[in-house]
Every structure is written in structure tokens, then in C-alpha cells.
Amino acid sequence: MYMNTNTRILAPEFDFARPASLAEAFALLRKHGRGARLLAGGTDLLVQMKMERLSPELVVSLAGVKELDGITMGDGLTIGAGTTIQSLSRSPAVGARFAALREACNAFSTVSIMYMGTLGGNICNASPAADTAPALLVHDASVIIASAGSERRVPLAEFFAGPGKTVLKPGEIVTEVRLPAPAAGTGSAFRKISRVVADISQVCAAVSLVRDGARITGCRIALGSVAPTPVRVARAEAALTGAEGTADAFAKAAEIVAEDIRPISDVRASESYRRHVARTIVRDALQTAWQRAGEGATK
């Protein structure tokens, strides 16, 4: 048992387990049910426990489960859910073809958080402000969800169910994140605005464009901190698809984004400020992605 009477650290009692395999992790989840919580990097769970918002009976660390770690490049990209943000930010495979994801990882809080935080933890936390989520959405990511007896693949766009909520069922673990290979002529970019570098975003946005000559033949635009979940903006995507890649077209699409998002006012930013920022960073990201798409390689 772990116990500390200093409520600024970890007040509740809890058991701790460090399985060496997914099979062991599944067995622990099956035995302890909803009383167990998974620990990846711990950058969110430990904060929630210190603030006494969560009091799990058992903390199951996935740090020893090597099956969850690693980046594999094939036709697309397969990322183990336990892969750290720092590893992603430095990966040549990510940097070469998935620029928006690389930039999202580079914008991820502090260096210490980047070394501890994992991709799986970031998306399973299901924060509307998760930095990697918009980038993964524009790269058409899906997640592999496994349990003791089954495995399923879920598009990331269908994974988030609300603030702090996902489609994960009891006993399930996200094991991988998969990104298909981008089409030729693809460019992508990520932008983030926050109060200070280490803060979560006031608004973050990612875009991906497919360029064929002077025209846009494919487009994805996603944002964080502007709705209950990370979201794509379908109307803006449709407005750009088939259009010429001009500054005017990008400005009009950014205006649609500002109209269609659903931001709130809170301690970090007002609703009107978030709309203004969204318009600005989406326009900038589109221009950058368009330029990258014309450089002869997917980025």
C-alpha cells in the first residue's frame, strides 16, 4: 500500500502493479474492474490523483509492457500507444511524411512532459485541448483497441465521446495508433496558441492538403480547445476541395472555421478570442501546408 498524509502529494491509499505484458495487464483489469486505472506516462493521472479527483484502488503501470512501444514505417505509420511524445518528435519517419504530428509533438508542454507523456495517454485522456489529436485527425489516424479476447480498429474521429470520455470499454487498452501513407502531393501543418509555452492550448489547429498543380484535391482541417472534443470542420474542408490554393481561398476557409467551431469562455481565453485565434492560425497553417505540398514530397 502507498499512503501519504500530505494532500498536496498523494493522499489516498492505492495498490500498484507493473505488468510485463499485455496479457498480465488484461488479467489485472479483469480482476479489479473499474477500481483499476492505467498509468502510461502519468502526466495526467498523477495530477488528477493529487487533486483528489481520482482515487483508484489499483494503479496499473504500462511502462514495462514493451509491446506498446515503438514506431514502424510501412505503407503507413504504426505507433505503439506507449511511445513517448519525445520519441515521436525526433522520429525521422514522422518528420518525413507527417509534419503536422511532428509539430504537435514539438509544441507539447515542457521537455520533461515530452519525455514522460505518451501518445496513447494523450488521446485516452480525451482532453478537448490534446495537442496530438488535431494532427492525428488530419492524418486520418485510427486506433487499435484490444482486450483479453478481442481487438478492434476505430477511426480516431469516432474515438472521442466527450470531455474526458472515449469509446473504450472496461478491460480495453489502446495498443496502437495507425496512420495511412499520405497521398503524393500532401502537405500538413500544426499551429498552437497558449498563454505560456508549458500551458495547454487556448486553440490548436492542424491541416492537411493534397495539391495537384494549382488546385486542392483533398483537405482536412481539425482543431482542439474549440468544442467538447477535438473536431474536424467539414464545411471548410468542402469549401477548399477543388479550389485553387490562393490566399483568398485560405482566408475564406478560415472564416468558415471561425463560424463553425463551438468554443467556450474560461480562465484561459474568451469565446470571441478563440474564434479570432482559430481564424488566424488555420489560415497560416493552410498556407504552410500548401507550400509544403508543392515541395515535391509529402510533409
Score class of each variant (00 low, 15 high):
M1Y: 11
Y2W: 05
Y2S: 07
T5S: 05
L10S: 09
P12D: 10
F14L: 06
D15I: 05
A17E: 13
A17S: 12
P19F: 01
A20C: 06
A20Q: 14
K31T: 06
H32P: 13
R34P: 08
L39W: 02
L45D: 02
L46K: 13
L46A: 07
V47A: 07
M49Q: 10
M49K: 03
K50C: 05
K50V: 00
M51N: 13
R53G: 09
L54P: 08
S55R: 11
P56V: 09
E57I: 04
V59C: 00
V60T: 10
S61T: 12
S61M: 03
S61W: 00
L62W: 01
G64T: 05
V65E: 03
K66W: 11
L68N: 11
I71P: 14
M73L: 09
D75H: 15
D75L: 12
G80W: 00
A81G: 08
T83V: 03
T84F: 04
R90G: 06
S91I: 00
P92Y: 14
V94C: 04
A96P: 05
A96T: 14
R97A: 11
A99V: 04
A99S: 10
A99K: 10
C105E: 06
F108A: 02
Y115K: 07
T118I: 12
C124A: 03
C124N: 00
N125Y: 09
A129V: 06
A130G: 13
A133R: 05
L136H: 03
V138Q: 15
V138L: 11
H139R: 13
H139F: 10
V143I: 13
V143F: 11
I144W: 08
I145H: 04
A146S: 11
S147V: 04
G149P: 12
S150G: 08
E151L: 07
R152G: 00
R153G: 01
L156M: 01
F159W: 03
F160P: 03
F160H: 13
F160G: 00
G164S: 02
K165R: 15
T166N: 01
T166D: 08
T166Q: 01
K169N: 14
G171C: 02
E172K: 06
E172Y: 02
I173S: 06
T175I: 00
E176K: 14
A181M: 14
S188L: 09
K192G: 09
S194C: 12
R195D: 00
A198W: 01
V203P: 00
V203W: 00
V203T: 01
A205Q: 10
A205F: 08
A206N: 12
S208M: 07
S208Q: 15
L209I: 08
R215T: 13
T217S: 15
G218V: 05
G218F: 04
G218T: 14
C219D: 07
C219F: 12
A222G: 12
L223W: 07
G224H: 01
A227K: 04
P228T: 08
P230K: 12
P230F: 01
V233A: 11
A238E: 15
A239G: 06
G242P: 15
A251G: 07
K252I: 12
A254W: 09
E255N: 09
E255R: 14
A258E: 06
I261N: 14
I264W: 05
D266T: 13
S272K: 08
R274K: 09
R275Q: 11
R279N: 11
I281L: 08
D284K: 14
T288Y: 04
T288S: 13
W290V: 08
G294C: 02
